[in-house]
Nucleic acid binder design. Structure first.
Lengths: 148, 148
DNA sequence: GTAGCTGAGTTCGAAATACGAACGCAAGGA
DNA sequence: TCCTTGCGTTCGTATTTCGAACTCAGCTAC
């Protein structure tokens, strides 16, 4: 199976993994969650080639993760890329990555950014929980069964 | 900046994003969390080319996400790839992807698998919470500030 | 009007990656 | 001795990515 055909794989973990597992896509989403919205800014901050940037933005537009929104600048109409509701729902994925990075990949030189809850000032972390009892779960607590 | 040099980017979200954002890596991790452990089985279930599989496994070994563990089969010593503690801690990332996939990418044909809490049988989902007050957070609830 | 600037792409030849079929190799078994 | 298995490595071809140059539309200044 060529990589591209995972887009149609019948698995709700496999399809997102294939979509976000394309080179540059996760880094692009990181920029977007940090507030970058314009083609030129993506290009400048990530040093991605323009043609690949065009391609990745188009894929995310097609998937409905991003939308193009017109805005005005010095009287001209331009467009910026913004998250849709679907895209905004990727927040837990990004936070899970960051929580993992903080625990396992942190170095002295990291100077990224702080995140805190607007209301109470607390920290932010991703976790997995049981929808019934609310317990926090690890891989060991979870049983995998084939779907009927 | 070529993609590879994000490996040294001073950001605890950027580095994991670059590592897992390499083609095949997320799909490989999915297989691993589903229980695949041997080279041949990865190759067969994902139809990845052998050389790329070798490369990705080596990267994950080097990063300490996987380890090679010897085991016996018909008297011969072989090796299998297993998650380290660091690797097992990627579980929330996978569950966040799946939670998102279930919500936004589910189709009729999906026949992947069920997950449930061993103790109480409940469902499984990823979420982001405040480390102080425990509230569930979305992107809008979180303030981003440059690190001092 | 026209020359220049800017944001947002598009094009294209060269370099890096991925593909897949064939090969290598070590350890058992027939 | 030869065959099979698991696990890679090699190598020529096909696909992606790179980066510099080009395009194009809508101002702005002259």
């Amino acid at each position: 199976m060529p990589y591209a055909s995972f887009a149609s794989m019948p698995c709700t973990l496999g399809r997102p993994a294939a979509l976000l597992g394309e080179r540059w896509t996760l880094l692009l989403l990181r920029q977007i969650f940090l507030g970058t919205r314009r083609f030129e800014d993506f290009q400048a901050t990530m040093e991605i080639s323009r043609s690949v940037l065009t391609d990745r933005l188009n894929v995310l537009l097609q998937e409905g993760v991003l939308k193009r929104v017109p805005y005005q600048e010095d009287g001209r109409t331009r467009h910026e890329y913004r998250l849709t509701d679907k895209g905004r729902d990727l927040y837990p994925v990004m936070m899970a990555l960051r929580t993992w990075g903080e625990k396992w990949m942190a170095t002295e030189e990291d100077e990224s950014f702080h995140l805190h809850h607007r209301d109470c000032g607390g920290g932010v972390r991703a976790k997995v929980e049981c929808t019934d009892c609310g317990a926090e779960l690890t891989a060991r607590d979870v049983q995998v069964t084939a779907r009927p």
